[in-house]
Design a protein around this nucleic acid. Structure first.
Length: 905
RNA sequence: GCGAGAGUGGCGGAACUGGCAGACGCACUAGACUUAGGAUCUAGCGGGCAACCGUGGGGGUUCGAGUCCCCCCUCUCGCACCA
């Protein structure tokens, strides 16, 4: 919290008592580390559990917003350890990548130094928050002992024909002299960094043949029942399977044929022109001399456009006829060939048959250039239309103007057309994917070197496995100059051919960092293995990941690449399952409002500070309050008053360095405690939703822990002495169903069993908010029951004993502390998870609701044993009910045992 | 446009296979203890004087609907000239 003076005083006179004190926390962190409570393999005979949060790019100091998924993973880890499982909960660093390189270019600090410093800082933040990992398995992708195996994996893909080299068009920044990823180019085709217009360049690049796995990546999604539907939908969309046909059009008067892909072969008779992508390889050879100038200009123009710009749907159609015609294979008609940038070279065959009557895009194009539009499908019984339609109709119907197929249903006609084409060798069924092969080369320094060698004759040869890793050399100049900075290091480039011993040149590109992260979860199984990527025993013990937790921003790329690599390794026999993550959870963001003080002038009007004027464009003022408020409202901000100070306040925005609203982990934990941070985050709402971090929410969490401390702390001696000398089982039995108890111990027993059931079920279902609500309820009830006792009862001590273990997944430090209060030895995480008995939940009597015509009219307390007849009689006997029913006959009585009786008049 | 999801008090959110709407918390109100309260404790807290009305709107199924079915509205996220 931002304003913090003097809130940590103990309660006033007469209301002292124990409070939750964050000063207890460091001791327990040291204890867990020293005793290795959270190291995998501690319980070799227990069932295993693999819980994993997505490893981060090490960005240095963490804030609370980063902490959310780590807290979730930590809670689950602690829960499963309590349940007696052997839990693997490792951590590592996605440590290669541009920020380190940019920092090096700017400050001269070598990327490795910069990265390692950030890792140390990030790790300190995590440790300060008490998030427990098995650090003995830490992986760091930029270290040779890791990237050696990334290179090994590359060679494996190469061996299996899944890594290949091809020429590709890339975004080239002429100022920074570097290749940019698509997402680094803005909508106007400019580099995000230099602002220069990005050029397209053709470069030889390495690809992974992920498209060979497209079908499996798609169909296996159906098995991933515990993945969010949303993520699966995104992957399906990305893979983009589409069934259709290839059709070949002979170019009139030439030998060449143009292959088009269509999902609507049934509309082939309606094709009135062809459109090729401007980059289509046949354009240059087919263009007529008189059209050449215009075509070349159009191609050059298309080349300059960014992908994003080009794909904007609201753009008007542009294109040029190339002056050649192609013959429609079903009716022999010669139709004109155009080029247009709405046809993409990267999809299908880069050429389409245009059917303007039945495709909106083709329709728009035909209208723009006055091309014919011919309807070939009509609704049942409709005649063929006389003129051209006013809009494209993609609907199914019956064929017209399609020769002998007229009158047949269109889908059936489509199959017939493909079959006829196939006989003549002019077409065939075809499945196309939107997914493209994975371009993995980067002309950058700070990444895994590609372990390939180039011979003088232009062929390539892999580095021998024994020579791995290909180490990233230290260099002085990280600035890319049209090629990877590695190309300037002659000592790096020079190598010997492993087969012939001849001099060869190393590939100087490095791998996309998504390659590093596509397999790290496997390495945790056996992270320190120097002889092999992992041992068969280790991988069988730990894979697949039971629970993967991370941000939805990785829904496609990282998760798809990881699934791909896992499937390749499965085919190679190196992993036991062809899916890496059995369950996936995507957490929501932590948000916080941003506030900026406004200045109040002598005349009472408000002035906005320059930063605010700049960031949200609010008028500087001075303005009267109402006008300032209106101006802020327009920008979704608000005007608030706090302590006499006028503040501009934003809506909730995701915590981030750039928004300046991150609550730093270290200082918060020191002042309030990790346990308070956890309860605040986990109690706020469902973990998959965004949550707003507020001082009030922190205060609520703090109050809860203080109340727990006050209640059980006051009685700690009595509780400890009640538990002394008892085994764990005997302690649990203090509130067992079989124990004979009087009030208020009876209700205490019922409440605690209900709470155990709720916390268990909710925790396993990611319902941390309701699990904690269950603990709060138990606390309230326990407090109530305790105040009805003169001195702590044995049952109450039993409740305390259970309570500290139920709290342990969510407020671990304090739970450990309570465990000690009560005389527990060792760690609370070895004390086992409490169980509940349904028998203890039943009350002797309970309240049922009596409804008349579905409206609640009375509540009656009835004995537990009451049967249907007794319930019916009790309901009919109720005074309130009789008053309402009067003389009306009761037509029907619905009895739901244990719940209600409904009288129908 | 296509796909996924969501609309419940002043706020965050609960509600298992249809069965007491609003658990738990925040904010707020009153009181207690206090030199003090931004501490703590106690009580209250959907709307309405009431009959009653209330889960985005309208229909339906049912003894009974936040929950199931149909239509509509709004919002969030993702994809989007993919042939």
């Amino acid at each position: 919290m931002t304003d913090g003076a003097g809130r940590r005083e103990d309660g006033g006179p007469g209301h002292g008592g124990p409070r939750f004190d964050p000063a207890i926390e460091p001791r327990w962190r040291e204890y867990w580390a020293r005793e290795r409570i959270f190291e995998a393999g501690r319980r070799p005979n227990a069932p295993r559990r693999y819980i994993l949060e997505m490893f981060p790019y090490p960005s240095g100091d963490l804030h609370i917003g980063h902490g959310k998924n780590y807290f979730i993973g930590d809670s689950l880890t602690r829960y499963w350890v309590l349940r007696g499982f052997d839990v693997l909960h490792p951590f590592g660093w996605d440590a290669f990548g541009l920020p380190a390189e940019n920092a090096a270019i700017k400050t001269g600090v070598p990327p490795r130094t910069w990265t390692m410093r950030n890792i140390a800082e990030s790790r300190r933040s995590l440790e300060a928050a008490g998030i427990m990992y098995d650090w003995s398995r830490e992986v760091t992708t930029c270290e040779p002992d890791y990237y050696r195996w990334t290179q090994w994996l590359f060679l494996l893909l190469y061996r299996r024909g899944l890594a290949y080299r091809a020429r590709a068009t890339v975004n080239w920044d002429p100022v920074d002299q570097t290749v940019l990823a698509n997402e680094q180019v803005d909508a106007s085709g400019r580099s995000w960094r230099s602002g220069a217009i990005v050029e397209k360049r053709e470069l030889d690049q390495w690809f992974f043949r992920i498209t060979a796995y497209a079908d499996r990546l798609l169909s296996d999604l159906d098995e991933l029942e515990a993945w969010p539907e949303k993520v699966k939908a995104m992957q399906r969309n990305w893979i983009g399977r589409s069934e259709g046909a290839e059709v070949e059009f002979q170019v009139e008067g030439r030998d060449e044929r143009i292959t088009v892909f269509t999902t609507r072969p049934d509309t082939l008779f309606g094709a009135t022109f062809l459109v090729l992508a401007p980059e289509h390889p046949l354009v240059a050879s087919l263009v007529a001399p008189e059209a050449r100038a215009k075509v070349e200009e159009y191609v050059a123009q298309a080349r300059r456009r960014s992908e994003i710009d080009r794909q904007a749907t609201d753009r008007e159609k542009t294109g040029v006829a190339i002056g050649a015609r192609a013959v429609n294979p079903v009716n022999g008609e010669a139709v004109p060939i155009w080029i247009a940038d709405y046809v993409l070279m990267g999809y299908g065959s880069g050429a389409i048959m245009a059917v303007p009557a039945h495709d909106e895009r083709d329709f728009a194009f035909a209208r723009a250039f006055g091309l014919p539009i011919r309807t070939v499908i009509v609704p049942e019984g409709a005649p063929a239309p006389a003129g051209e339609p006013s809009e494209a109709s993609p609907d199914d119907g019956f064929m017209v103007a399609s020769g002998d197929l007229d009158g047949r249903p269109n889908r059936e006609a489509g199959r017939a057309i493909v079959a006829r084409l196939e006989e003549r060798g002019l077409g065939r069924p075809k499945v196309t994917f939107r997914l493209r092969d994975w371009l993995v080369s980067r002309q950058r320094y700070w990444g895994t070197p590609i372990p390939m060698l180039h011979r003088a004759d232009g062929t390539v040869v892999p580095v021998a496995e024994a020579d791995l890793p290909v180490r990233l050399p230290e260099i002085d100049d990280y600035l890319p100059r049209g090629r990877s900075p590695l190309a300037s290091s002659e000592s790096f480039v020079a190598a010997r051919d492993p087969e012939t011993g001849e001099p060869v040149r190393r590939d100087t590109d490095t791998m996309d960092t998504f390659v590093d992260s596509s397999w790290y979860f496997l390495r945790y199984a056996d992270a320190r293995n120097e002889r092999e990527i992992w041992s068969p025993e280790a991988i069988r013990r730990w894979m697949p990941v039971d629970q993967y937790i991370g941000g939805v921003e990785h829904a496609i790329l990282h998760l798809l690449y990881s699934r791909f690599v896992t499937k390749v390794l499965f085919d190679e026999g190196l992993v036991p399952d062809d899916e890496p993550f059995r369950q996936l959870f995507t957490q929501g963001m932590v948000q916080r409002r941003v506030t900026t003080p406004l200045e109040r002038a002598a005349d009472g009007r408000l002035a906005a500070p320059p930063e605010l004027v700049k960031s949200i464009g609010v008028p500087e003022g001075p303005l009267p309050d109402a006008e300032m408020r209106a101006a802020l409202r327009e920008r979704s901000w608000d005007l608030v008053e706090r302590g006499g100070q006028a503040l501009a306040q934003s809506g909730p925005v995701t915590m981030s360095k750039s928004a300046g609203n991150g609550v730093p982990m270290g200082p918060f934990v020191r002042e309030h405690g990790s346990d308070v941070a956890r309860i605040t985050i986990l109690f706020a709402g469902p973990p998959e939703s965004n949550m707003e971090w507020t001082d009030e929410a922190v205060g609520g969490a703090e109050r809860f822990l203080n109340r727990v401390a006050a209640l059980f702390g006051r009685d700690r001696e009595a509780i400890a002495s009640a538990l002394r000398g008892l085994s764990t089982a005997e302690r649990d039995a203090l509130v067992a169903a079989s124990a004979a108890l009087d009030e208020p111990d009876r209700s205490l027993r019922r409440r605690v069993h209900a709470a155990v059931r709720k916390v268990t079920a909710d925790t396993e279902a990611f319902g941390f908010n309701t699990a904690i609500a269950g603990l709060m309820e138990l606390l309230n009830e326990t407090q109530r029951c305790r105040s009805a006792m003169a001195s702590p009862s044995r049952a109450y001590a039993g409740v305390a004993w259970i309570f500290c273990r139920l709290l342990a997944p969510f407020a671990p430090h304090f739970a450990e502390e309570m465990h000690r209060w009560f005389g527990g030895e060792g760690s609370v995480y070895d004390a086992g998870w409490p169980s509940w008995e349904e028998a203890a939940l039943a009350e002797d009597s309970f309240e049922i609701v009596v409804q008349v015509n579905g409206k609640v009219r009375d509540r009656l307390t009835v004995p537990r044993a009451a049967g249907e007849d007794e319930l019916r009689a009790a309901a009919l006997g109720s005074d309130k009910v009789r008053e309402i029913v009067g003389d009306s006959p009761v037509k029907k009585v619905v009895v739901v045992p244990g719940r209600l009786v409904n009288l129908v008049l």
